[in-house]
Design a binder for these strands. Structure first.
Length: 255
DNA sequence: ATGGCTATGTAGCATAGA
């Protein structure tokens, strides 16, 4: 079973790239973030023609997440239960006996800002809920844009980014808390190239110079981590015309 | 030198992303 995540930064603009990518990589489950469209404008017919069912939690202009799956999707749930949130950031569904969470963690804008406070509060609610989900679903995968670079090796220039949003201590602590619940960062289960990133600023030729951050992750419950045979970042779509600023991440599960 | 680029909403620029 191949599961993947990709922040597409507008599904309307990126649909051709997404369809092309689905055709070439053929994931069983694909989590998308930053759709930037309402459910009524979701391109369901095109996605279906590519062989995928979809669950959608949309929003006009900002946020919006979706789960695509070759197998039927069951028990679809939107948001974090018990945490009212006007922003569409979390979507959960079961596909082939695996509970899949698609998450778009708040960006946080700047350390100390209101949006940063929202990010940390959001993370706390997310962690509380995931602890319960983990108890209910031994086969649990949490994929998405976490907007946190876990360690300095996930940052092209740790000195410049030290203490900045996406790299600050409290954000890293919030992500580490999820790992403390038992989740594994699937990417780090394997030997990886140095300077592996999933996001590069559109400006300053950042991608060509590989000035990036690794902020998109696939976290796996202990049982799924034991079944994980590989995890890679696919740089190819970032090289294309009109790319998303994020690259997709893919994990392979056996059994 | 605090910009740079992209997308959205909306008709000029403002907001947001990371």
């Amino acid at each position: 079973m191949r599961i993947a995540t990709w922040n597409v930064n507008s599904l309307k603009v990126r649909l051709p790239l997404v369809l092309d990518w689905l055709g070439r990589q053929a994931p069983d489950v694909m989590c998308l973030q930053e759709l930037k469209l309402e459910e009524a404008k979701f391109p369901r017919a095109e996605i279906e023609a590519a062989g995928y069912q979809s669950a959608v939690f949309g929003q006009k202009t900002y946020n919006g997440v979706a789960i695509l799956s070759r197998a039927p999707l069951a028990e679809v749930q939107t948001g974090i239960p018990g945490y009212p949130d006007a922003q569409s950031r979390v979507l959960t569904a079961t596909a082939s006996q695996v509970r899949v969470v698609c998450a778009y963690v708040p960006n946080g804008q700047a350390v100390g800002s209101q949006k940063y406070d929202y990010k940390l509060q959001w993370f706390a609610a997310f962690g509380q809920w995931l602890k319960q989900e983990l108890a209910r679903h031994p086969r649990l995968a949490v994929l998405g844009d976490y907007n946190v670079a876990p360690e300095d090796r996930d940052v092209h220039d740790p000195k410049t980014w030290e203490g900045q949003v996406l790299c600050s201590g409290p954000e890293r602590e919030a992500l580490r808390h999820l790992l403390g619940l038992g989740f594994k960062d699937s990417f780090r289960l394997f030997e990886q190239p140095e300077k592996s990133y999933t996001w590069w600023d559109y400006r300053m030729n950042a991608f060509r110079r590989n000035l990036g951050l690794r902020i998109d992750h696939i976290l796996l419950s202990p049982e799924l981590a034991g079944r994980c045979s590989g995890c890679i970042i696919d740089l190819e779509p970032r090289r294309l015309e009109r790319p998303s600023d994020h690259a997709p991440v893919i994990a392979e599960l056996t059994g």
